[in-house]
C-alpha cells in the first residue's frame, strides 16, 4: 500500500459541538430490554430469517414492537417492500412461530408502514450478516 497517511493527527472541527449521541439505528426495536414472555417472543422472532437472505427479520429491522397481554402477543412489523411476494409466507411464519411459544395463547400481527423501512433500520449485527452474504451495506 502506498498510502500510509496516518489519521491520528485529525482533530475535530473547532466549530462543532461534539456530544455522545445515540446510535443511528437505536430506533430499531430488537427486544433487548424485554423480559419474561415478551423476551421469549423476541427470541423466537430472532430465529426467523428473511426469505431471501440469511439475516434475522429482527436484525433486518422489520419489527416495530412486541407486547404480550393476557397471553395474547401483539406483534407490529413491516416489510421492506409493499409488493413483497413473500408477504403471506413471512407473516404466516411469524404467526405460527409466535403462537408456538409456550405461554402465548394467541397472536395478533399487524403490518405497519411508517416510519417506512430503509436500510438504516438494519442493526450492526444485521449489516455483518449481509456483508458476509456478499452485500455491500
Amino acid at each position: 500500500m502506498s498510502s500510509d497517511i496516518s489519521e491520528t493527527d485529525a482533530t475535530p472541527c473547532a466549530y462543532t459541538d461534539y456530544r455522545k449521541g445515540e446510535q443511528a439505528n437505536s430506533l430499531t426495536e430488537t427486544g433487548d430490554d424485554a423480559t419474561g414472555l415478551e423476551a421469549a417472543v423476541w427470541n423466537t422472532l430472532y430465529e426467523i430469517e428473511d426469505p431471501e437472505m440469511p439475516i434475522s427479520i429482527v436484525d433486518l429491522g422489520l419489527l416495530y414492537g412486541v407486547s404480550v397481554q393476557d397471553g395474547v402477543a401483539h406483534v407490529e412489523m413491516t416489510l421492506t417492500y409493499s409488493g413483497c411476494p413473500a408477504r403471506d409466507m413471512l407473516t404466516e411464519q411469524v404467526e405460527e412461530a409466535v403462537a408456538a411459544v409456550e405461554g402465548v395463547k394467541d397472536i395478533e400481527l399487524q403490518l405497519v408502514w411508517s416510519p417506512e423501512w430503509t436500510t438504516e433500520r438494519v442493526t450492526e449485527q444485521g449489516k455483518e450478516d449481509l456483508r458476509e452474504f456478499g452485500l455491500s451495506v
Binding site: Y81, S82, G83, V112, W113, S114, P115, E116
Partner: peptide, 11 residues
C-alpha cells in the same frame, strides 16, 4: 391511510 402514504410515495 396516513400510515401507508409515505411508503407508497417513496416507491
Amino acid at each position: 391511510i396516513a400510515d401507508r402514504v409515505r411508503k407508497i410515495q417513496s416507491e
